[in-house]
Design a protein around this nucleic acid. Sequence first.
DNA 1: TTGACATATGACAATATTTAGATATAATCA
DNA 2: TGATTATATCTAAATATTGTCATATGTCAA
Lengths: 111, 111
Amino acid sequence: MAKQSEEIMELEAEVFNALAHPLRLKILERLRGGACCVCKFIPYVGAEQSNVSHHLAILKKAGIVRCEKRGLEVWYGITDTSIFKIIDMLEECVISNLKRKSELLKEMARR
Amino acid sequence: MAKQSEEIMELEAEVFNALAHPLRLKILERLRGGACCVCKFIPYVGAEQSNVSHHLAILKKAGIVRCEKRGLEVWYGITDTSIFKIIDMLEECVISNLKRKSELLKEMARR
DNA sequence: TTGACATATGACAATATTTAGATATAATCA
DNA sequence: TGATTATATCTAAATATTGTCATATGTCAA
């Protein structure tokens, strides 16, 4: 495997890793409506402020979100909205996988 | 947030997590050409047999691959090829992110 | 049946991630 | 200036992930 694609894969793995947590997926859901300040995420995801801040830092490090200071607040927004397409496609995958499994169960019950 | 979407997000996070490792992305690259037996992955990814086996189990648990015994060998294949579209889209994201950053650096150097 | 083979599994150490609580920082306002 | 607010950072404990080694399992062939 070419050195270059190995390096790209490391970056890809880092981004996938940033997406690999329910709390971070929730934060991204909140961002579908546009940028907002940290204080909005806290009740939305139902976690400690320091924890939310930590997860935001992970999303930022992966390049998925960017932030900007506005007075006392820090506003976070999506860097590239095509991340939503990726999440949506994965959701479809997961749901069709669930359906496939439940069909299989039904078939087994029938016998 | 609805209970149901929380549960879907957990599943999504699990699948993203399965994608979040360079070695597993390599395994999936090898599977683009179609199903193959475990022995093919070992030299391809350059890891110990037991390690490859562990990573295959993670991909399988997430529902990304499925396997089948053929004599002594075990053949692994993709469950749903739309996972490749997801990986491809993420690669595009990563690459355009890199480009954006390098543009920014160029601009800063110009000043 | 025995041995060889391909793969999976279990145990373990090293490392990373997650969370909460305490504290630091930086901006605003009285 | 000092108090207040929003957010980030540090610390430490709990937990999860990773890689390696040793071993188990299941299949085939002699």
